[in-house]
Computed example of a mutant assay.
Amino acid sequence: MRVTLEKDFGFEAAQQLPSFPEGHKCRRLHGHSFQVRVAVTGEVDPASGILYDHARISRAIEPLLAQLDHRLLNEIPGLENPTIESMARWFWERLEPLLPGLSRITICETPQVRCHYDGPSRS
């Protein structure tokens, strides 16, 4: 049986988006209560009845969240222009080696705005 397991995490952080035009509100310093959803896809182990122990996902992401929580994202290497698109890629690059079957990273900066990243193009 093939399934996708998702687990949600949150962190608080400030950001400025220097690539936005002068006068744009997102170019100014502001903060969000970010939500990160990590999805892994694969076959359920018939013996255990699960794909992953949820704690495995938590162990992989917790050090990353510690780097970001209550920080200015622009100061984090790789997030100098911390759009949700670049944040999704940043998480992917760090989690993919730790979580076989990683299939999607979703970053929500508000309840209405999110970015899904399914990994680098395989073409």
Rank of each mutant, 00 (worst) to 15 (best):
residue 74 N to I: 06
residue 8 D to R: 13
residue 28 R to M: 07
residue 57 I to Y: 05
residue 54 H to D: 03
residue 83 T to H: 04
residue 47 A to G: 05
residue 6 E to K: 03
residue 50 I to K: 00
residue 72 L to M: 15
residue 7 K to T: 01
residue 18 P to Y: 10
residue 84 I to Q: 11
residue 36 V to I: 14
residue 119 G to Q: 06
residue 58 S to K: 04
residue 67 Q to K: 10
residue 53 D to E: 15
residue 112 Q to H: 15
residue 82 P to V: 11
residue 47 A to S: 13
residue 70 H to V: 05
residue 104 R to F: 01
residue 41 T to P: 03
residue 123 S to V: 03
residue 93 E to K: 11
residue 40 V to A: 06
residue 13 A to S: 07
residue 26 C to E: 02
residue 46 P to C: 04
residue 22 E to D: 13
residue 10 G to R: 07
residue 31 G to P: 01
residue 56 R to N: 09
residue 37 R to K: 15
residue 116 H to E: 06
residue 65 L to P: 05
residue 122 R to E: 07
residue 95 L to G: 06
residue 117 Y to M: 05
residue 38 V to S: 04
residue 54 H to Y: 04
residue 120 P to I: 12
residue 100 P to V: 06
residue 109 E to N: 13
residue 33 S to W: 04
residue 89 R to E: 13
residue 52 Y to K: 00
residue 31 G to Y: 05
residue 61 I to T: 11
residue 42 G to E: 00
residue 101 G to H: 03
residue 53 D to S: 05
residue 10 G to M: 10
residue 120 P to W: 12
residue 113 V to I: 15
residue 61 I to R: 04
residue 39 A to I: 00
residue 93 E to M: 11
residue 93 E to C: 10
residue 67 Q to A: 13
residue 63 P to E: 01
residue 24 H to W: 13
residue 42 G to R: 03
residue 57 I to C: 04
residue 117 Y to I: 06
residue 78 G to E: 07
residue 52 Y to L: 07
residue 32 H to A: 08
residue 80 E to H: 11
residue 8 D to W: 09
residue 123 S to K: 09
residue 25 K to Y: 11
residue 37 R to M: 08
residue 98 L to D: 00
residue 13 A to D: 04
residue 36 V to Q: 01
residue 34 F to P: 12
residue 97 P to N: 06
residue 50 I to S: 07
residue 69 D to K: 00
residue 46 P to Q: 12
residue 11 F to S: 08
residue 58 S to I: 06
residue 42 G to I: 00
residue 96 E to F: 01
residue 91 F to Y: 05
residue 49 G to C: 08
residue 102 L to E: 00
residue 67 Q to R: 10
residue 37 R to C: 07
residue 47 A to D: 15
residue 24 H to A: 13
residue 67 Q to T: 08
residue 69 D to H: 00
residue 116 H to W: 04
residue 61 I to G: 07
residue 88 A to K: 09
residue 30 H to G: 01
residue 10 G to H: 09
residue 67 Q to H: 01
residue 122 R to D: 03
residue 111 P to A: 10
residue 54 H to M: 03
residue 50 I to L: 12
residue 80 E to G: 05
residue 111 P to F: 11
residue 67 Q to E: 15
residue 32 H to R: 05
residue 21 P to S: 09
residue 22 E to H: 07
residue 6 E to P: 01
residue 113 V to C: 14
residue 110 T to G: 13
residue 53 D to A: 05
residue 87 M to C: 08
residue 103 S to Y: 02
residue 62 E to G: 05
residue 30 H to V: 06
residue 44 V to C: 02
residue 10 G to V: 10
residue 110 T to D: 13
residue 117 Y to T: 00
residue 15 Q to G: 07
residue 75 E to D: 15
residue 23 G to S: 07
residue 3 V to H: 03
residue 81 N to A: 15
residue 38 V to W: 07
residue 88 A to R: 11
residue 85 E to Y: 14
residue 61 I to Y: 06
residue 115 C to L: 08
residue 71 R to T: 15
residue 81 N to P: 08
residue 31 G to C: 00
residue 12 E to W: 02
residue 118 D to H: 06
residue 89 R to L: 14
residue 103 S to C: 01
